[in-house]
């Protein structure tokens, strides 16, 4: 059985869906944050697989850019979570209910 590009695309789609489900279902800020990283990395898998399949370099370059963006997002995201954690000592997003109306 040969592994074609479709396998990679299906795997990436499955990972992306898991990530999206994680953001929507889980209530712990850090887990939600990890789910977003999972989504970004599944996109990377798609980029690289398609790039290899089509014999183009663009997709691999795009994957590098996405990694940098993901790193920048981690920096800011963790800082925000720490800022909240400091005066709440809980990472449960359901307790963030200051703003409503």
């Amino acid at each position: 059985m040969t592994v074609t590009v479709t396998w990679y695309l299906v795997l990436a789609a499955a990972l992306f869906s898991m990530g999206a489900a994680g953001v929507l279902i889980r209530r712990n800020a850090l887990i939600m944050f990890m789910s977003i990283e999972l989504m970004l990395n599944s996109v990377n898998l798609t980029f690289v697989a398609v790039s290899k399949h089509l014999g183009l370099i663009e997709g691999q370059v795009a994957a590098l850019f996405v990694m940098v963006i993901a790193a920048a997002e981690v920096t800011v995201g963790l800082a925000i979570i720490v800022a909240i954690f400091r005066f709440r000592s809980s990472a449960n997003v359901d307790e963030l209910s200051e703003l409503r109306g």
Partner: peptide, 27 residues
């Protein structure tokens, strides 16, 4: 702080969705 966190979480989700759209269009 709460506003920032909500913006970050939903904004990153939107960015990831947009990016996956880009990847699929590329495919």
């Amino acid at each position: 702080a709460e506003s920032s966190f909500k913006y970050f979480l939903l904004g990153s989700l939107a960015s990831a969705l947009f990016l996956y759209g880009v990847a699929l269009t590329f495919a």
